[in-house]
Design a protein around this nucleic acid. Structure first.
Lengths: 223, 223
DNA sequence: CTGTATCCATGGCGATACTG
DNA sequence: CAGTATCGCCATGGATACAG
């Protein structure tokens, strides 16, 4: 941890938080991840060594506590860590409003599916098992096809065919679906312009935008 | 600017903001500084080359706009920059609550005086010229003595005797006065315990805590 | 599954000096 | 006053392999 040589609380806070990846790890913890590899999936481009290092720093700073339960370790936020929620939310709102341009490298389909997995409104889905297949155009084969399976309030994602027939198939450029997810583009506009196309029974096609919804930050008003 | 390879708005925001010093420069701009050397005084440990570099990055990111006026350049926040205010405030509140421990290197008297200069409640001061002298114990000679001069709603600080007689002299360990300023310790407690001693007419001694006040973040409730 | 160990290149950043 | 120019270190962190 490098220091600023200032007593200002903003500077003291940044000494803890300004290192690369730190607030993204906090974001994952705020989203409910606790296990090491669960955290990794939220920050896949971060090396495990660095994640371990950051977790130790955050522990020393009193933001995170490591615990052992059922013979497997886990991490949770302390009260100090939990109180970073408004800060991370501000950051997300600001990023939504003012940092729109996405590079090709930002378009990670795994992260999109992982994000859907944890925020999809399961209560809005049919009670019986429902499978949504995704086909991303212009993405290399191994990550172009994904499946979202919802059953009994449980959500799973696969990058292989789970064997059940898809209720709806969603086809779109990855960039387009990311934009819809972020709220840069509405479901309505995307479907009307055929930037996203759906395949399946009419009723399911009608309901799909409600099933998937959008990222929690999508509601942030744009400048 | 290093990237995270994530479309998440939190990550996109951090790409702009997570580099060392960046949010401290924004803090200075939010506090009203506009000129290059004025900004420098708020981040004295930052090299001018690095400050220039950060200002350019922030300009590219659309957070800051450089302008020319009266033949001298200046910097001001754009709307995107202004909207960082709640974020910086959250950061300050969090730092106040959870990052209390100050190292010796954090105790910079120049920053303390500079911070007072811009937030002192001038309307609470007498109308005639008023001088408060500071004597910091255990600080090397050239920065142990300071003067705060208030007249006609104008505040000035000097590190040399301005020639006018001091209305009140404040003597304290630098750490103590910093703690009072941050709100870690009340004026009342500090004066009662004689951690801070005042010299001057009774009325002025009584009013001094109101004249100086505390940092805006001092009101943040502690855990 | 939960991390460690090691290596290496990059470049960030601190320090200092200097210029229009 | 408002920055540039230059230098060089060392730490950051990316990559990969591996271990309990």
């Amino acid at each position: 941890m490098t220091t600023y040589g200032q007593f200002c609380p903003v500077a003291k806070a940044m000494e803890v938080l300004d290192e690369r990846w730190t607030l993204l790890v906090v974001r994952e913890l705020l989203a409910g991840s606790t296990r090491f590899n669960e955290l990794r999936r939220g920050v896949p481009k971060m090396s495990p060594a660095l994640l371990a290092k950051r977790l130790r720093s955050l522990e020393r700073a009193g933001v995170v506590r490591r615990y052992e339960a059922d013979d497997h370790p886990g991490y949770r936020l302390t009260q100090a860590g939990e109180e970073l929620r408004p800060l991370v939310e501000s950051l997300g709102a600001w990023g939504t409003r003012w940092v729109g341009g996405l590079g090709e490298a930002d378009l990670d389909p795994h992260l999109l599916m992982w994000d859907m997995r944890r925020t999809v409104p399961v209560n809005a889905w049919p009670r019986e098992r429902t499978v949504v297949a995704f086909r991303f155009d212009g993405v290399s084969a191994p990550v172009a096809h994904w499946w979202l399976v919802v059953r009994d309030g449980e959500v799973d994602i696969c990058d292989y065919d789970p064997g059940y027939e898809a209720t709806v198939t969603v086809s779109a450029a990855l960039r387009t679906l990311v934009r819809v997810w972020r709220g840069d583009l509405s479901w309505q506009m995307a479907l009307r312009g055929e930037a996203v196309s759906l395949d399946g029974p009419a009723e399911a096609r009608r309901d799909l935008p409600v099933w998937l919804g959008q990222s929690p930050l999508a509601v942030v008003p744009r400048p």
